[in-house]
Design a binder for these strands. Structure first.
Lengths: 211, 211, 211, 211
DNA sequence: GATGAATGAGGGTTCATTCAT
DNA sequence: GATGAATGAACCCTCATTCAT
């Protein structure tokens, strides 16, 4: 008896987490419904509480999970082996495409920020995930400066925030932007144009001033 | 006597709208509480429905009101009289500072985007407010290109979205960014640095390629 | 000044009463909305209270008005001049058609009965309207008995209740009856059949037993 | 211990249904109060929604339940074994007494008709309950015609509607009728007289014309 | 006679959460 | 490890009615 209860447990936990992430992404923390999460995950409502304590615990778990996912994918780019401009170009492309393909990440972050980051404040898991990112970007900038391609004195965090901002804002705010400018921002062509625009903007932002 | 803060339709409506904007900004559409809005506006709860039909009507009114406000302030910059680079610098500065001083605008837009823009979809007031903005920015770009300062072929909308994105994302996501990078993004110094970074980034993005 | 304010007042009162009758008929006393009555009558809400005291006063006024109307129309039949069988046939036909053409009367009565007749209890106007009806029917029965067509000993009230019941119930309960029996009770043909059935039933009920 | 009246789904559901039926009968659909139903059933208010979705779902359930009850009792009369006249007499008696003893059925139907039968329209349970009734009555009429007691060509539905109407209307409208005719319709004697009147009326309606 | 603004009580419904098994 | 029944607080909204003008 009790054969691989552990495996089943993990599976249940995983299904709940996946359903929750979807739900939070779609409706925000406040709009998310515990009932819907239970139903979609095929788990009993009581199980959510068993595994995650409460709705907010579940929200935090989603957040951690998604942070871990993007940072993991990022590290697999192995940018330290590429020439600085190329490395930067790849990071920009990756970031844009990640947001595009994982819209739940964007909405999750918006929710957490609406709540002033109070869930992450209680988490020790998120912060460490980001040290490699800054190191990597710092390394690229240093190498670029040394070889004369990039300006000196660029703050890796400021640059990263720009890389993120240019895509994140476009996608996160696409509904209001579409209405406001009367254009569909999500056609294949529009997306291609935005990616090009972002790449240009970021590369222009770091390049050394011409003599 | 005259215990009435009431009996003045416009004033009552205005107080409700102000309180609602605050509330929606703080808690989002779903998290906002109609009771709190009523209480803070000093109006009877019934009045919210009298003037705005329902919670969502009130939300839309807030949104329209805030859009109208930023676009109005923007038009007062009178950028058409300035040299292109200076005009652009001012627009960047204005946008950054507006978000900084009116955080409610940022959260309001996030909420509307969480709901896929469905409130604005029913509004005819918002769209027209934005035509002058695009014209103005198009005019600046054209003048800059003509005088040789700016590149040709820049899409005013793409540029505007970048101007907005660089500040909006930094401020909107400051809670997660702070945790993630372990830095306080809201010190006076940090804000000054970000504004400088944004200005550089945008000006670099439009300047003509050196020969 | 104040020229024919009386005429206007009567007109306003009349429009309110008409709108109220419609509203009560459609939604019942509980479901009726004072706002809707005001709007449809084109009168200010305050006026309803001015003329009728409150919602229940308005309901009673509707009731009295409709009772007065049907009894008035009934008296115009001048049945006392007709042969007993013909007089009875006409009364049956009139009653059926009145309910058919004035469905509001039916719903109004149902509402009042749901409320155990407590509005009428306060009215002195309704009772006297019905004395002539009983006299008239009593007169018909007496004449019929004397000429040998009708049985003796029929209670005019019992008979009248049957005359009313046969049509009233069919029309009042047509929705449930239609569903329950799977037939449309309101086609022209169905209505003709019901009228014939009722006439037969009532005439059979009073005729003298064959020797 | 065992302070729980609860933890028994069927029992809870049943208590809610009983309380709801009473409440709807007394105040109509619009006038019924969910709070009162909860309180009287001893259940938590939330449970009404758990079992019946919403107030209208509860109303429909009451309706279905009461239809099922009357039709069930009716079938137990086993009229197919009786002589036609006796069978009809019993059906009339049963119908009258059922309305008398179950006034909630009458008010429930009135409510549903006020709402144009829209709840029943969504129910598949009610219709089938009535097929046996029509068959039974059709059978009685056929047997009566064959033996020469009854007329031919009587529509069972028309006859049933008359049987119902004669008692239903008297009881349903007893409040207005009492006021209007100035007589107490509910004394034991009055009820006996009405039952006799109805029986006579219905039997007269079907009997074969004398040669 | 007439108006629009205002009121407070309470309406149905939904929520995250916990209990008993 | 899992379940369905149960909870009570609170949410958005609507009501008949009245006040100030």
């Amino acid at each position: 008896m009790k054969r691989n209860a552990g495996r089943d447990a993990d599976a249940t936990r995983g299904r709940i987490l996946a359903a929750a992430t979807q739900e939070f992404a779609r409706y925000g923390l406040g709009g998310a419904r515990v009932d819907r999460i239970a139903e979609r995950s095929g788990a009993n409502k009581r199980m959510l509480y068993y595994y995650f304590k409460d709705k907010e615990g579940l929200f935090l778990a989603s957040l951690e999970d998604r942070y871990s996912h993007i940072r993991g994918a990022e590290q697999e780019l192995r940018l330290e082996h590429l020439a600085p401009r190329e490395a930067l170009r790849r990071l920009v492309g990756f970031t844009w495409n990640y947001y595009l393909e994982h819209p739940e990440f964007v909405t999750l972050l918006n929710s957490e920020n609406l709540h002033k980051g109070r869930h992450m404040a209680r988490s020790a898991r998120v912060r460490p995930l980001h040290l490699p990112l800054l190191h990597m970007l710092g390394d690229i900038l240093r190498r670029g400066a040394r070889e004369g391609t990039f300006r000196r004195g660029i703050d890796p965090m400021q640059l990263y925030i720009s890389i993120a901002a240019e895509g994140y804002f476009y996608l996160s705010n696409r509904y209001t932007l579409s209405r406001v400018f009367g254009r569909n921002l999500m056609t294949r062509r529009a997306l291609r144009e935005r990616e090009a625009h972002i790449t240009d903007t970021i590369l222009n932002a770091v390049r050394r001033e011409p003599a």
